[in-house]
Design a protein around this nucleic acid. Sequence first.
DNA 1: GCTGATTTATTTGTCAGACATTTATCAAGC
DNA 2: GCTTGATAAATGTCTGACAAATAAATCAGC
Lengths: 240, 240
Amino acid sequence: MSDNSKPRPRPTDLSAAIASDIRDAIIAGRLIVDERLPSEAELAAQFEVSRPTVREALKRLAAQSLIRTQRGASGGAFVNRLSYEQAYGQQITTSTLLLSMNGVSFDTACEARFALERACAPLAAERRQPDHLAAMQAEITRQSATGLSDEAFCASDVAFHRALVDAAGNPVLSYQLAGAVEAMQPLMNMITYTRRSRDVIIGLHQRIVDALEQKSPEDCDSALVELHSYTRDLNQPTAR
Amino acid sequence: MSDNSKPRPRPTDLSAAIASDIRDAIIAGRLIVDERLPSEAELAAQFEVSRPTVREALKRLAAQSLIRTQRGASGGAFVNRLSYEQAYGQQITTSTLLLSMNGVSFDTACEARFALERACAPLAAERRQPDHLAAMQAEITRQSATGLSDEAFCASDVAFHRALVDAAGNPVLSYQLAGAVEAMQPLMNMITYTRRSRDVIIGLHQRIVDALEQKSPEDCDSALVELHSYTRDLNQPTAR
DNA sequence: GCTGATTTATTTGTCAGACATTTATCAAGC
DNA sequence: GCTTGATAAATGTCTGACAAATAAATCAGC
């Protein structure tokens, strides 16, 4: 009556197994936020392994921001409250690598991004605050500058779209979209932006801001749709 | 000896600094998929640290699925091709913890989930394949069973919605949505589902499947909107 | 010459013990 | 009362060693 019916292949890697144990305890709530784990020596005794092995396990968890460590007396490993900032970072790293390593096409990534972004637009139109509009307007100004490198233009584009997402006022949405928006940047960096194409994009950005200011989700949506197809065609000007 | 002027301001936590270095190299493409890293001993010499320190760094990267390791001659650490499966897993873990540790309200998470899901609906209506419809229909059947626990009902609900997302035929969307959908499960598990409420939900699910079958994005969207508001009210029956 | 078993070399996985560094706590001295 | 120093606890790091896995080289046998 053992649980060897579980499909989980018990890792022969002790540090991976220990990390998995502790991770499960955190996810299941048996270890709560800010709770202190036993010291490395105690964990070593508990799992009957050496301290370096325990440390490797803890580093794995630290890499996922599940724990944080503190040195000194009354230090140790603590269950970490995963902040939005940390979650953003991991989300962006994972998304970026997923796209680049699997040869995801520009079209696929672009479609996903604009689909998700359109989902935010109605909420953004309803809740946008002055600072969101100001942030977006500032990026438009930056994008209009002459002599801006393609890379800088892309970075500003990303910042614009992140501000748009943030305007929806839903931190969970912002978190989910962070990956989609940021991971697009490397792909968009491969495009050459002519003066005219920049002007078109900037014009659409302005339409988006205006639509949000007037709380018109329809105008915002149509601008996004146009921006999507324009961006797609930029990448494959001779397609079809 | 030019690099002794390398005052990188993170001398604490050498293993974190080394992991960061290697991670940057992978993201920047200086290390490509399936490329073998130097052995632990070589890395130790290269970074002028001990092998355990290098190992801790490598374990951090392994925790993010950035590398995989192999024992034996011609073994070592290899840059890992991040698979969608692995990315799903990390996304789900991070999202679940983010919601539970930050006390994200049901409404907020629910709003994000349905907003994102509505973004998938038009694509799903266009591209859904028979197996997607079959998978969704199978979950509806499961949900209709009597004596089903609330937890099992929720699990089936999640499976239904993931099938809906997959029907959009965009792996990047599926990846992004995996977190949003799965992370909702713990929150939805806290709801008690009466027979009547289950019937309402199942009815809406059926409407969604029918709409997809008929390739009607409008019907699908309206069903999703209704499902959203119904779910929200289930959680706070006396609100407003 | 070729096949198959054996040895060898390389590399990760694990262990033990030690020292360095950081930090909270507490006691001593002014 | 406040500062200051000693103390203890914990993580961070190092050294050296052995175990285990695995691919390549070697060698015996035909």
